[in-house]
Simulated scan of single mutants.
Amino acid sequence: MPRMFRSTIAVLVLVPLLAGCSTAQVILDACPAIGWMNSLEVRLDGARAGEVALVELCDEAGCSVPGPTAATDPPTAGPWYSGEDLGTGVWRFTLDMSAPEEFDLIAYGPGVTELARESFTAEWHRVGGSAQCGGPMATDPVEFVID
Rank of each mutant, 00 (worst) to 15 (best):
P2Q: 15
R3T: 14
S7E: 08
T8F: 15
T8E: 08
V11K: 08
V11A: 13
L12C: 15
V13H: 08
L14V: 08
L14A: 10
V15G: 00
V15A: 04
C21S: 15
C21A: 14
Q25S: 12
Q25E: 10
L28R: 13
A30Q: 12
A30S: 11
C31F: 01
C31L: 09
I34K: 11
G35K: 05
W36K: 02
M37V: 11
M37Q: 11
M37Y: 11
M37P: 02
S39N: 12
E41N: 08
L44C: 02
G46Q: 09
A47P: 04
R48T: 04
R48L: 07
A49G: 04
V52D: 06
L54H: 14
L54K: 15
L54A: 05
V55N: 03
E56L: 15
E56F: 07
L57M: 12
C58A: 12
C58H: 05
A61C: 00
A61Q: 11
A61I: 07
S64K: 02
V65F: 04
V65D: 13
A70D: 10
A70Y: 06
A71M: 07
T72K: 05
T72S: 13
D73G: 05
P74F: 10
P75F: 04
T76E: 09
T76P: 04
T76R: 14
A77G: 05
A77C: 05
G78N: 01
W80K: 08
Y81L: 10
S82A: 10
G83F: 12
G83T: 15
D85W: 09
L86Y: 11
G87C: 12
T88C: 04
T88V: 00
V90P: 07
W91Q: 06
W91Y: 10
R92S: 10
R92D: 10
R92A: 12
F93G: 03
T94H: 05
L95M: 01
D96R: 00
D96I: 01
M97A: 13
M97T: 04
M97V: 05
M97E: 15
S98G: 03
A99V: 02
A99F: 04
P100T: 13
F103V: 03
F103A: 07
F103N: 00
L105I: 13
L105S: 01
I106N: 05
I106W: 02
A107N: 06
G109H: 06
G109R: 02
G111I: 04
V112W: 12
T113F: 06
E114H: 06
E114W: 02
L115A: 01
S119N: 15
F120K: 04
T121V: 09
E123N: 08
E123Q: 14
H125M: 05
R126L: 04
R126I: 02
G128A: 02
G129N: 03
S130N: 12
S130V: 05
A131M: 15
C133K: 03
P136G: 02
A138K: 06
A138T: 14
A138N: 05
T139K: 02
D140V: 07
D140L: 14
D140T: 11
V142T: 09
E143F: 14
E143P: 04
F144V: 09
F144P: 03
V145G: 07
V145D: 14
D147Q: 11
